[in-house]
Design a binder for these strands. Sequence first.
DNA 1: ACTCTTTGACCATTT
DNA 2: CAAATGGTCAAAGAG
Length: 163
Amino acid sequence: MQNNNDQNNSGNQYNQSIREQKRSDDGYNWRKYGQKQVKGSENPRSYYKCTYPNCPTKKKVERSLDGQITEIVYKGNHNHPKPQSTRRSSSSTASSAIQSYNTQTNEIPDHQSYGSNGQMDSVATPENSSISFGDDDHEHTSQKSSRSRGDDLDEEEPDSKRW
DNA sequence: ACTCTTTGACCATTT
DNA sequence: CAAATGGTCAAAGAG
């Protein structure tokens, strides 16, 4: 038979609405590029990368079986304005201070460790495109309190803040 | 047709 | 050097 094409569409994958899932978007688009299980925890770690040409920004998200985020790690900085999903455009001045790549010694910003009960509020208010750069800021306070991330139970509340 | 998620394998790094 | 862990890429599937 000549016709062979066939759209074998089997299997079903749950998908809500793609690209519009406002679940914990910082206002940027992320593309999942991997998922691995780390030892010591059965939580799968998801690796996300900012969708942008030249955006070395990467995000590591570890979720618990309960759906709570156990750990979030941002790596890199965005060098491009925030995409306007469908939110208020506001004039936003759009100064577009798109700095050209290169911020001096920009090379691997390092990790941002934080305490367990710490507040990682950095840019948790996606509003307006206020390009918030930060350049390289090492917060090396050398203030290592106790707790060095061993195998202690996390005392994080289920819904402490609004993720 | 395009875009994005998912999964496995492979590579890089550390001990 | 090898094993272990983590990290990244790529192909396929699904919408």
